[in-house]
């Protein structure tokens, strides 16, 4: 099941490059490879465009003379490209993607929903990654009881099907974007930790770490100045794939009625709510679905592309 975090983290586990000679040169090589990877560049471009559009929603709404909250009972379920309605200030407004069941502009609503979905995905992934990387480096570097303890937490968390856990937690915390970020972040770090722990274990024995230790560098310094930079590719790959997975998780929770609640828009709740309007407003079902699909697709493609770029066994 890909709409939960459990499987998305499993993808990069094995594919992650393990035999690399020097972080520096590999990064340069990877960037060179990425520059030639048209598909990944395209995905990056599309993603940046989507993010830019979403986060300039207030400007766009102003330019089109529409509001994502203003209801209009005389103009519900307007089809896309309808432009002739009287808008906010008694002047023409442009409903590029039509209006929804309450007569609100669907396009700007989609953009605001995108803000929520993207932020939830991005911030939750960052949170998960920070916890995951920190825990991974610490367990990998120190081992011992810390390792055992964190492993126990991981196996405990992994033993409960993630959606069950999310269901229970979502029932406890009325999900606002903030709580959802925290919850998804706190549940999604285990895969990263395992990955980073493995990487750290091998990096710990490498010459540059051993020599740093020999000249008396503090463990903190070693962990963050020597080990962390070498985890760059792992971090990027995990981030891209996690964001995608989290956006899907949010949608799945919305379907079960436990995601972000109306009147906050998110792609997930717009999509699950639009279900009942299949025949009346097909566009309300189509666009949120497409936005989720394209965004997640781009993120996966980027994750893939970065992985290939950092793959030391690949030939140029």
């Amino acid at each position: 099941m890909t709409s939960t975090t459990s499987t998305s983290t499993a993808i990069p586990k094995l594919d992650t490059p393990r035999k690399r000679d020097s972080g520096e040169s590999l990064t340069k090589l990877a960037i060179r490879r990425l520059r030639r990877d048209k598909l990944t560049l395209l995905a990056m471009g599309v993603l940046i465009l989507i993010a830019l559009l979403c986060f300039s929603a207030p400007l766009i709404g102003g330019a089109l003379n529409v509001s994502y909250t203003r209801t209009n009972s005389n103009n519900t379920f307007a089809r896309p490209l309808q432009t002739l309605e009287v808008g906010l200030n008694e002047s023409t407004s442009y409903h590029i993607l039509g209006t929804d069941d309450l007569g609100r502009d669907h396009f700007t609503r989609l953009l605001y929903g995108g803000q929520v979905s993207l932020s939830v995905g991005f911030l939750a992934a960052i949170l998960a990654l920070s916890i995951g990387v920190t825990a991974g480096i610490i367990t990998g570097y120190y081992g011992g009881w810390i390792d055992d303890f964190i492993n126990w937490i991981i196996s405990t968390l992994n033993s409960i099907p993630s959606l069950f856990l999310l269901l229970i937690i979502a029932a406890v915390l009325q999900p606002s974007p903030t709580t959802l970020i925290i919850v998804l972040g706190l549940l999604g770090w285990t895969g990263t930790t395992r990955l980073v722990r493995g990487e750290t274990l091998s990096l710990r024995e490498r010459e540059f770490v051993v020599s740093a230790r020999a000249i008396g560098a503090s463990p903190l310094h070693i962990m963050f100045s020597h080990i962390l930079p070498n985890l760059f590719s792992v971090i990027v790959i995990t981030l891209a794939i996690d964001i995608g997975g989290l956006i899907l998780s949010e949608a799945a929770l919305s379907f079960l009625g436990l995601g972000i609640k109306e009147p906050f828009p998110s792609w997930g709740n717009m999509l699950s709510k639009a279900q009942e309007y299949f025949t009346r407003g097909g566009h309300l079902v189509f666009f949120p679905g497409v936005m989720i699909f394209i965004t997640v697709l781009c993120l996966y493609v980027i994750g893939d592309g970065v992985r290939d770029a950092f793959d030391p066994t690949a030939k140029d």
Partner: peptide, 23 residues
Amino acid sequence: IPLATFLGPAITGLLSGAVITET
């Protein structure tokens, strides 16, 4: 061989997926 390690996560994945699929 490595695929065998996948059985554990696969089961949680299936159970999670079952929540939505069954609905």
